[in-house]
Each structure stands twice: as structure tokens, then as C-alpha cells.
Amino acid sequence: MIKALETLGATVLESLEMIGRTFNLLLVTVWEMLQPPYRFYPIVRQMYFIGARSISLIVISGVTIGMVLGLQFYYILERFGSTDLLGSGVALGVIRELGPVMTALMVVGRAGSAITAELGIMRTTNQIDALECMAISPDKFLVGPKVIAGILSVPLLTHIFDFVALFGGYFVGVVMFSVPEGSYMNGMVDAVQWVDVRLGLVKSLIFGLLVTLICAAQGYYMHLTKAGSQGAEGVSFVTTNAVVLSSISVLFADFLIGALLQ
């Protein structure tokens, strides 16, 4: 019993420590990024990796999700004879919820895990120490460009996802089930307001920060955890951790933003 409580306590303490470190990393990185010299090419490089290289994945998953959504909404709405609302349903669902969340989860899987693994390996092989010893801030050199690229790339990817998902829904509704094109498009335009688009934008900005920051922190502070002394196995452990943690954070933040921003 006491043993179990001890384990619980240790887990809670460890999680709190990790949250503190992640927050600390954010503050230090913001501070370091504000110091000259400013370099933009590293950010472009990271945007290429996090954003541009994810386009194909985002397009494929976007079209698929849009089609699935169109299909399911159609079956439900057909029962009430209100397939006119198909456009509204698909558009609201994609722009407010599925676009930002699915994109963030895709970025976690594709780029987030790679960020953790890269930083974890750099930590275990002393590359981060080497940067420090060369008087180059690793926060600025390694973490900053990744986080900024994440904040910029995830919203862009989200809107590409939204666009192709709407196309997927259109394909199912209008092309397959012959919902009148006018009612589909007008339903979309009438239902979606600027506030919905803004909500999606705010969500994706926050998700971009969360995903890259959490994944970076897991790799960057690897040496401070139990995994630190385990070399390659430790890297795989923190990478799994990063994927789980950042995915949960995205879903939780999604709920929180939805509740606060309406």
C-alpha cells in the first residue's frame, strides 16, 4: 500500500518536473531567439522538414477524412431528409475540430517523433554539450527554429488539410450521392462564420507550439530522466513518451480552447 503511494508520488513529482522543464525550455528559447544575430535559414530548413515534407501525408489523410465525414453525415441526414445540411456539417466539423486536431496528430507522428529522436541522440552523443562548449546556445541553434517552424507550419498544414477535406466531402456528397451542388456550397458558406475559421486558426497555432515544444523538451532533457543513461534504448523510450504526451496534450488543449473560446 505504502509502496503504491510512493510510486504514485514519484510519478506525480516526475511529471511536474517535466512540465516545469518544458515551460523553462519555452522561456529560455524565447529569450535566446530574441538575442541577435537573427538567422532565418534554419527556420526555413525546419519548415521544409515539418511542413513541406508532410504535405503528401496531410493531403491523403485530409481527402480520406473528408470523404468519411461526407459518407457518415449523408447516411444520418438522409434519415431526416435534410441532406441539404451536408455541406454545413462537413465544413463545420472539418474547420472547427478535425482539421486542426488531425493535422497536429499527423505532425506528432511524422515530425514530432523525429525531433525527439534527433535531440535525444544529440544529447547522448554529447553533441549538445559540444554546442555549449562552442559558445553556441543549443536553445537558439536547435530548439528555437524547430518551435518557430512548428508554430508556422501547423496552421498552414491545417488549412491545406481543411481544403482537401472539404473537397473530399464535396466529392462524396455532390459527385457520389448527387446532393445539389448549390445547397452543398451554400450550406458550407452559410454555416461557417469567420469565428469558426478563427477558432481553427487559433487551435492550430497553439497545437504547433505544443507539439514541437513537448517533443523537443523530451529529447533535449533526456539526460535528466531515467532514460538518460540508456543510450539508444533511452532515445526510443523518450520518443514514445513524446508521441504519447504531445498527442494527449493536443486533445486536451482542443477541449480547453473549444470551451474557452466558444
Binding site: M122, T125, N126, Q127, D129, A130, E132, M134, A135, S137
Partner: peptide, 20 residues
């Protein structure tokens, strides 16, 4: 510390070369 580190060089055991 950074000022000082510009005057020091370190060769780590495993090299710690940036792999990218």
C-alpha cells in the same frame, strides 16, 4: 561563460561531431 568558451576548444571522447 560564453565569452570564456570562445577561448576554449573541446574535443569530446566520441567526437560529438554534428551528424547532420
Amino acid at each position: 561563460l560564453y565569452q570564456l568558451r570562445k577561448q576554449t576548444g573541446v574535443a569530446f571522447q566520441g567526437g560529438a561531431l554534428f551528424s547532420s
